[in-house]
Design a protein around this nucleic acid. Sequence first.
DNA 1: CCCATCTACAACCATTTGGTTGTACGTTAG
DNA 2: CTAACGTACAACCAAATGGTTGTAGATGGG
Lengths: 135, 135
Amino acid sequence: MVVDGIADETGETVDRLFHALADGTRRDILRRCVRGELSVSRLAAAYPMSFAAVQKHVTVLERAGLVTKERRGREQLVRTDPEAVGRARQALDELESAWRARVDRMSGLLAEGADDGAGPDAPDPHEHTTKGPDG
Amino acid sequence: MVVDGIADETGETVDRLFHALADGTRRDILRRCVRGELSVSRLAAAYPMSFAAVQKHVTVLERAGLVTKERRGREQLVRTDPEAVGRARQALDELESAWRARVDRMSGLLAEGADDGAGPDAPDPHEHTTKGPDG
DNA sequence: CCCATCTACAACCATTTGGTTGTACGTTAG
DNA sequence: CTAACGTACAACCAAATGGTTGTAGATGGG
């Protein structure tokens, strides 16, 4: 069980996941490849763009772990990984749990009249690793 | 309940949502702004980048509907919108429901030996509106 | 074998992104 | 008023993105 698989040290796994989902064509490919594996060329025929462009989209989805490719003869069959959406959802869960935990805690603190002021123990750099210059 | 709010005709709302989430700095900002509103300059102090850069990140989050800004005096307080994560989750739900529906339907179709018309010349354009040249 | 198909990949281009700096404007404190 | 703070925004730059075309390597059919 790869716990770090969801969020590695820099969060680049999550980056790839959401980035892959942030494109309509790629989301559409995901939907299409659920009803059964489709070859890349068959996919390409469905969009108003070149084969190579679709190929790149599939690569992005693959690197994000959202689809898998399997070769059958000269074709490359693309299939969505059902667990992948679960992974994306879990990434959201982690954000949301931060929500709930904080909000919940805030209620308690307010009850005590305390003020975390978002200052004292706040400067705890979570990750803030955008795509840094060293990227 | 604004159903269309989740996915407009071209899906660009979903695009913005996932794009905003596809960056570690922005996800970190979301986490920080849960424990209470933070001014942009206070946020900026937490990252190894300029004020203007953080300002841009906040703008991206705002356009995605993930945070709201409220002016207090000369400060601009940033606060995450708890419902926003719910919206992202729902976008995932829509993808996942496509999964389940298709898979479920496939079982039935296989039993009938029918073809649901996923054919190449029967492209059912869901959206496939990447960021087209017209966009 | 020869040809058509499917894939892979490189080179190239326009636009976007993420970052910088600099400047201008509103607000609060002295 | 003046100075300092916080914000807004424009101009600029390097790198990534999304697209194109072209070329080359496998695979399968006649």
